[in-house]
Design a protein around this nucleic acid. Structure first.
Length: 260
DNA sequence: ATGGCTAAGGCACTTAGA
């Protein structure tokens, strides 16, 4: 089965492209980020017509995450635990039962954190600490778990065309990478890096300055797997061709294949 | 990327993204 993550940069502006990709790829579970709409504005009928269940955690204008799936989830929770007064919609988690076995999948839109030096950067680091605590709790369940989304983290120099240009950026600063490593070191597997060590493997290309044409990209969209999920990993990939479509998102879908 | 583009809100321009 295919589990995918995609920051669509506005699902209303992107409905045709997102539907085209769903039709082509037919993911079993898809995690969307930056839907940029409240729940009632999500074009759910278009996806239901393709046979998908739609669960949203929207917000007016910015952020917003969703879980779309062929099978109806058994349970859904909205919001990352531990965020008293956090009004930003950046986390939704679903639980499915596939052939009697639990599969838990979260759609994550981790804060960008720029500009460093404003309140946005400590908000990012605090959010990452909350995610680490929650992941630690979930791992105690010993379930197949997929934490998928736009992490806004460049894990290693190989994950950027020009890593030196990012060293002071919130996506690549040492504190950011350290927090990301703490999360991974709980026992999670970066699905894409489990299947390839190739450089030039990116999930985001800026709209500006011909970044796409020059393959000036970064890899910031990740699927992190619990041991129970990692042992079922049979492939991982990036649907890079989607970036060349009309009116594309600046991110492309990243996906994994899990054996039953 | 010290920002060249894009989406959304709401109707001229600002905010946010990475």
């Amino acid at each position: 089965m295919i589990v995918a993550t995609w920051n669509v940069n506005g699902v209303r502006a992107r409905t045709d492209a997102v539907i085209a990709w769903f039709t082509e790829r037919r993911p079993d579970i898809a995690c969307l980020q930056e839907i940029k709409t409240q729940d009632e504005g999500f074009p759910r009928e278009a996806f239901e017509a393709l046979g998908y269940h739609v669960e949203t955690h929207g917000q007016k204008g910015f952020n917003g995450v969703a879980l779309l799936s062929k099978e109806k989830p058994e349970a859904v929770t909205r919001g990352l635990p531990g965020g008293e007064g956090d009004e930003q919609s950046r986390y939704i988690e679903g639980l499915w039962r596939i052939n009697g076995k639990p599969l838990r999948v979260a759609s994550i839109y981790l804060p960008n954190g720029n500009p460093v030096g404003t309140e946005k950067y400590p908000y990012k680091l605090d959010w990452m600490a909350r995610l680490e605590r929650h992941a630690s709790d979930l791992l105690e369940r010993y379930e197949a778990l997929v934490l998928a989304g736009d992490y806004n983290v460049i894990p290693e120099p190989i994950d950027a065309k020009h890593p030196q240009a990012w060293v002071e950026d919130a996506l690549f600063r040492p504190e950011t990478r350290r927090a990301y490593r703490r999360l991974v070191n709980l026992g999670l597997t970066d699905a894409l890096r489990a299947t390839t060590d190739a450089d030039g493997t990116y999930s985001f290309w800026d709209y500006q300055a011909g970044a796409w044409q020059k393959n000036n990209g970064i890899r910031i969209d990740h699927l992190l797997l619990s041991p129970e999920a990692a042992s079922r990993l049979s492939g991982a990939g990036i649907d890079k061709h989607v970036r060349a479509w009309e009116k594309p998102s600046d991110h492309v879908p990243v996906l994994i294949d899990l054996t039953a």
